[in-house]
Design a protein around this nucleic acid. Structure first.
Lengths: 257, 257
DNA sequence: AGGCTCCGTATCGATATGCGATACTTAATA
DNA sequence: TATTAAGTATCGCATATCGATACGGAGCCT
């Protein structure tokens, strides 16, 4: 469909976008939000915030505390994510394999999907003692600094890779986080050659990850499997020796179905 | 705010509701949906389906296959659920306790929330070999036939309980599923007396669950913890003896923070 | 291969619907 | 109790959204 250059998109329903903007305000905080705060956070007028918050509440996507008159996300927002994962062709197939790996090797395993310059963890098998955020599906991370992200970027077309690398403002999670586009491109080249990606101290000091894409019969892979370990127990040599073969076997197996 | 009787709700944004209706169509299927199917499934005109699908796609909540021109849920729908759980006061606190229980007792454990006549699983620690749907947060079950649901219903006001029990059309998952309102009410009374709920063969033959609400300082509890086992290994007597004390300790601990 | 059918896409004028301003009410603070 | 800030309700206006419909193309059947 033609999104006329410059002219506005005739099929785009702005009310929907504004409504979602209000819900999205809850990404920024774990707190409840009042109407005025919502208006401020979204750039909507107070009237618009009032209408949308009211509508979301009536539909069950927001909950309103009767005393404080403040809003929170409602349980219902879990629903669509559930159906997304349940219907995802790879998630269901991957689960038993991930579980087996976690049992056998005692490392955390994830199935990750790419969304532009981010990856999203879809199916997770954490290895204990993690925080809630680290075990929930839906968590987003920049692709460039995670092993799964790099494994997936390695399978992009060059133009798409360029676009991701050209984007400014990469976060330095640690002093070792590589943010230089040239260096990242070389890293991706290496991943292309060897077929797996390793990311050490990129998000958290003392954490190392290894990942490989789930092949999809010549098409661009839709997902990657990654394992995450601590550097005190796992050096790169040992990972390549002991984990990479297992990793490749798992991605292979998931791909076959 | 006054939702004038009969007259329409001036603050309700219908576009939002219609837009969500389109997304909600994906609850019914794991397949992709075409425009005509979407229109049929939602009762929207084809024009409306076109506009909303287009808008969702541009926002990343739907993905469109370029070849087939059919739509699927996009990864982005996971996002809000993630933030809901991350911000939920009980979920984060409960997680380590649930994990400990699973390790110690080898049973599946969940933190469940009630939403009207349903419960929604929020934090899950499955005990292996389960299907994907059984380990994902966001799964909905009728409250009346689950141990967690009964534990939460036991703490409702009578009017709310009446409303739930009055609703028609309870599903009989198994021949043992109790659907009679009177019998359920008696069951809930028992739960009130003893402080925990047991549900045997209610959803699946051979499955038994035990649950207790997480107390909230006299207010109505917001969540329940439930454990699920197989009946061949766990009879009611053994559950009461070995699991219920642990269950009460956990709900107590979560409540304290 | 050709014709047919069904589905997705694009366009358009009418108007209901959502818009923001504003006045009112309630609750929190000192 | 005065003051202030936040939430709630109302309303006339204008435009964003509506459904009908015409168009184009993919797939199917004969």
């Amino acid at each position: 469909m033609d999104v006329a250059e410059g002219g506005r998109d005739l099929l785009f329903v702005e009310s929907l976008e504004r409504g979602m903007r209000l819900l999205a305000a809850f990404r920024g905080t774990t707190d409840s939000l009042g109407l005025t705060e919502l208006a401020a956070a979204t750039g909507l007028t107070k009237s618009a915030a009032q209408r949308f918050a009211h509508t979301w509440e009536r539909m069950g996507y927001l909950e309103k505390d009767a005393r404080s008159r403040r809003f929170r996300l409602g349980i219902r927002v879990l629903e669509l994510g559930f159906f997304f994962l349940r219907g995802h062709p790879l998630a269901g197939r991957a689960m038993p394999h991930l579980l087996a790996v976690r049992e056998r090797l005692g490392v955390a395993v994830n199935l990750s999907l790419r969304d532009g310059a981010d990856i999203v963890y879809a199916v997770r098998e954490p290895d204990q003692r993690l925080t809630l955020a680290e075990m929930l599906p839906g968590r987003r991370m920049p692709a460039f600094c995670t092993s799964a992200g790099r494994a997936l970027l390695a399978h992009c077309g060059d133009d798409e890779l360029d676009a991701v690398l050209a984007a400014p403002g990469r976060i330095r999670y640690t002093p070792h986080t590589e943010t230089d586009a040239q260096a990242l491109r070389r890293e991706i080249e290496t991943v292309r050659r060897q077929g797996f990606a390793i990311a050490r101290d990129q998000v958290l000091i003392g954490q190392i990850g290894v990942a490989a894409a789930v092949p999809d019969f010549g098409r661009q892979p839709a997902a990657a499997v990654n394992m995450t370990m601590t550097t005190d127990q796992w050096g790169e040599a040992r990972i390549v020796r002991e984990l990479v073969p297992q990793l490749m076997a798992v991605t292979e197996a998931i791909s076959r179905g």
